[in-house]
């Protein structure tokens, strides 16, 4: 069966004074109703991947190669009109800052109604009705009254719920979530995560959830993809990646997390910093920080090695380990 989202060898370059290699051959296959956690640090290419899927990157300064298919349609070949139909209808997105994602001069009810009418060719009254249903669905108390509220009249958590209501109003097949809980207080963050998990199950949509927070990724994902310098370095079912992290970067990331770290011990920090995307090293981009680095890591493309059925790692050392293991067996 073809996946709902099929991204192959996606590369994104930003041109200008310097050429920034933001994505360098990303492959993502997402099944219907699956939640993929895209985990990585700033500059790893998580957000660029989402924006490329909606073709929201500045066209004049961006070079995109590879292919993006959503629901069997080629996103990179779409014209403006087709894109408008896809955005919000088939693929929808939520953001970290709801204040910036919502229009400050329209009420929440009107914004949802407008989206619904635009995609469904329905009456304004039907649109308002849908808005009410959606505010109820995201558990906004006294939804009827909130229809006529402006974004600034709501608290942070309520605004985040309103943005989710807007994004889901046309029952998209894919929801792209770009750190939607990062700016929230701890007690609110968990509420929004649980809400998203519940809505995802009810509506059966596929989700790509971008986050830098491992805990958040664990709460929401079925599968994890770890990004580094514009490449996916490890991907697999959530449990496999958490229990058997295989890429040195994933291992380092999990080890450096403060969660459960004991006082008085040193954190196992990964030395150094991610490479600049306009000066990517040859070979594996993680090589300069890697404790297992060998001479062969520094040239050529590093291939993806399957670790198990659905768990794959982009690492030469891991490949060598696998070979040694199978030789013994």
């Amino acid at each position: 069966m073809t996946p709902l989202v099929d991204i192959r060898d996606l590369s994104v370059r930003f041109t200008g004074e310097r050429t920034v290699h933001a994505l360098n051959g990303v492959d993502i296959a997402l099944a219907r109703g699956e939640v993929l956690g895209l985990l990585g640090e700033s500059g790893s290419g998580k957000s660029v991947t989402l924006k490329a899927m909606l073709r929201m990157l500045p066209a004049r300064r961006t070079v995109i190669t590879g292919s993006i298919n959503v629901s069997g349609r080629d996103v990179l070949a779409m014209d403006e009109h087709e894109l408008e139909g896809m955005r919000g209808g088939v693929v929808s997105m939520i953001f970290q800052e709801a204040t910036l994602a919502l229009d400050p001069v329209y009420t929440i009810g009107d914004q949802i109604a407008e989206t619904y009418v635009r995609h469904h060719d329905s009456s304004w009254a039907q649109g308002r009705q849908r808005a009410l249903e959606m505010l109820d669905a995201v558990r906004i108390p006294s939804a009827k009254r909130r229809l006529d509220a402006y974004p600034h009249e709501m608290s942070g958590g309520m605004r985040q719920r309103a943005m989710i209501a807007l994004a889901l109003s046309c029952s998209p097949e894919v929801l792209l979530a770009d750190e939607p809980t990062t700016a929230l207080d701890a007690t609110v963050q968990i509420q929004i995560l649980l809400l998203l998990r519940e809505l995802q199950r009810e509506m059966g949509m596929a989700v790509i959830f971008v986050t830098h927070d491992i805990g958040v990724a664990v709460e929401i994902s079925d599968r994890l993809a770890v990004m580094y310098a514009g490449k996916i370095v490890e991907t697999g079912p959530l449990r496999d990646v958490m229990r058997n992290p295989s890429h040195p970067y994933t291992r380092g990331l999990l080890a450096s997390t403060i969660h459960g770290a004991r006082k008085g011990t040193r954190l196992e920090a990964i030395p150094g910093a991610p490479p600049r995307l306009d000066q990517l090293p040859q070979g594996c981009a993680f090589a300069p920080r890697c404790s297992l680095v060998g001479a062969d890591c520094r040239d050529g493309d590093i291939a993806v090695v399957p670790r198990s059925d659905r768990h794959a790692v982009r690492c030469l050392r891991h490949a060598a380990e696998q070979e040694a293991r199978s030789a013994v067996a």
Partner: peptide, 10 residues
Amino acid sequence: DKSVEAQVLN
């Protein structure tokens, strides 16, 4: 970022 946070805490 998490990996840098750990360095700075150390």
